[in-house]
Amino acid sequence: MASIGAVATAPLRARKAGENSPASIGFLVTLWVAVAVAMICLLTLLVTAFVDGYPRLDGALFTRYSSRVIPETAGARAAILGSMWVIGTTALLAIPLGIAAGVYLEEFADEQRWYNRLIEVNLQNLAAVPAIVYGMLTAGFALAIGLERRVVLAGAIALSLLILPVIIITTREALRAVPAEIRQGSLALGATPLQTVWRQTLPSALPGVATGTILALSRALGEAAPLLLLGGLVFVSYDPNGLMSGFTTLPIQIFSWTGQPQEEFQELASAAIIVLLGLLLLMNALAIIIRNRYQRHW
């Protein structure tokens, strides 16, 4: 006790400049400025896109095909339908595969095995690989199996590869959040491990899985790079009608329009951007609703 000194009995020190010192205020101002810069940039983008695109945000945008010569009446019909085709196919490919892989890694894989650890490390890295690399990978893959690379299926494969690591990781995190007691309770009743996953663990984790999956799909929706690398068509004047159909998507269409000299195409691009942003906002809102309404706090 002696070395520590006497018990402190002095009155609490009066508040000094602590929270109001110039350093503290300076720090706070820096934070506010940082936030303001980010928000102003975002707002500028949104407002200019809206102002430029609003006049073209009409029925024609959704019903007419793009045009090389008469931009006044061109629309994004092919791109909107193409985006739906590609994202729908991506969902069908990536969601079952991603959830199955996540369930295997979290519930069944023996982490002591070298090959499971290898998968683990690769997965973390794959999630950080630039999108364009998946485009190159798919182009090579398509060449190897003799698949035309400008079709819906090829685009969907590229986007599936892109979001697969994200779906796997979010599935695993959602499963990990389900308490071990639930699994034990099920197994102790004589359920098999498969029944336990299928009837207890996975249903409990589903809101988390759904949230992550929708966010991943909305990322795929906004992606242009891998599709451009596949040679995605920039000019399509027909509705895509199958997996082997040529296609364009909203981001590709926007990219193509912004490269045109005519003023009308710039306006058209802004209108398409508004549509794309609206779709993304809708998907993210859906993810948030699912998370808030169904996510369980154990």
Binding site: E181, I182, Q184, L187, A188, L189
Partner: peptide, 14 residues
């Protein structure tokens, strides 16, 4: 486990 059931320390209803 079907013949020999188990009840745990912390109640763990599904």
């Amino acid at each position: 486990r079907r013949r020999i059931g188990m009840v745990f320390q912390k109640p763990n209803p599904f």
